[in-house]
Design a binder for these strands. Structure first.
Lengths: 201, 201
DNA sequence: TTTTGTTTTAATCATTTGTTTAATTTTTGA
DNA sequence: TCAAAAATTAAACAAATGATTAAAACAAAA
């Protein structure tokens, strides 16, 4: 009863990594089995099918990724500027450990976008969250132009996520890997500043 | 001699679309054949193998995508600000017609990043192009902070490309498809403004 | 028309791949 | 300790998949 759950989890972690790196169709069940150090048949014993294993992993991934944004947006304590810093640092820390996550998410957004928000209604979050309220306050105080919140969040996520999506291109543009990594580090400080400036008139 | 080249091109276009939508491994040769209205064997007659067909398509795609940026960067006529506008509008026009292009590129960057620049040396473009020169002039004139050019280009490309990569998520955040499309339109005007403001102190 | 080279087709091959089965080993609880 | 349950394995199956073959249809040149 204990041993099983352990290997089940091991398979899931291995599969998650492989799916992230190569995508659903490119990963073969035998590859997952070998990489997890299990017999091929065990995969179906625990997960019924490759498809089902993938669905489980995707549901987890989507929810966790979005939760990171939503939890901060719903924080009553922190102010608007602090939330931007929290979102930036939160995601950049995550991406340091899972650099393939963004591309993985984006690739499967088409079929799994609904799972992003789990139980929550997207529009509720984007109109009634503390972050949404604070955003409107900024607009009312004329510190931000009157544009939809999505536009703002889109810009923030763009700047955070894109370098990890385009890293092979950017590291070539940067000249070498070292300069690219330096650039990534720099962004953690700069993104909140850039975002703030962007809307300054 | 004429008929052949025509079907060859038809296969290539169909395959390109499928590869963009589903990725290499998920597209089956029979699917390409059926969608192109040809017999399965013709695919190997013209392209030797699925792999080879894909390589051809990727090489084309990478070069064309990057060329769009590099050509503008090497323009002697236009000034710095105009180049930013040209890059933004150039790419957004392209993406309107090929919305899956960014994800397709990013997914295959790992294996095909070298083909991005074709003959050119990346560092040459990023240090000796007119755009690079003009960027340094802006820095010298204190109109821009002293940061590497890649950082700047990364931000510009982020804002242009990300909405097309994350569209299923963003359209949900926006509330409905209509509002999302409105947002996309708005960005064409706003991105150059945002970019300019970003670096204002 | 005949001939020659090109294009297209149906059928087939050899692997790969997801899944299942049936037997074996290991673990657990009484 | 020992039987029942859980975990693991080797072997095999059926469908799919990329590729090839040999023959047919077609087009162009002589």
């Amino acid at each position: 009863m204990k041993k099983g759950e352990l290997t089940e989890e091991r398979i899931k972690q291995t599969a998650k990594l492989l799916f992230q790196q190569k995508g659903y169709a490119a990963v073969k069940t035998r590859e997952i089995a070998e990489a997890s150090g299990i017999n091929l048949a065990l995969l179906n014993y625990y997960f019924r099918s490759k498809e089902n294993l993938f669905q489980q992993i995707m549901a987890d991934t989507m929810r966790t990724f979005m939760q990171r944004l939503l939890l901060i947006m719903m924080q009553p304590e922190s102010d608007f500027r602090q939330k931007i810093i929290d979102i930036t640092e939160g995601y950049l820390d995550l991406l340091e450990q899972e650099p393939n996550l963004p591309l993985f998410i984006m690739n499967n957004l088409g079929t799994h976008a609904d799972e992003l928000f789990g139980e929550m209604q997207p529009d509720k979050v984007f109109t009634r969250s503390f972050f949404a309220q604070q955003y409107r306050e900024e607009i009312n105080a004329k510190r931000l132009p009157d544009q939809p919140l999505v536009q703002f969040v889109c810009n923030l996520l763009s700047l955070i996520v894109f370098p990890y999506i385009a890293s092979p291109m950017l590291s070539r543009m940067a000249g070498d890997e070292e300069r690219f990594l330096k650039m990534l580090k720099e962004r953690k400080k700069m993104i909140p500043v850039w975002i703030e400036n962007m809307y300054q008139k």
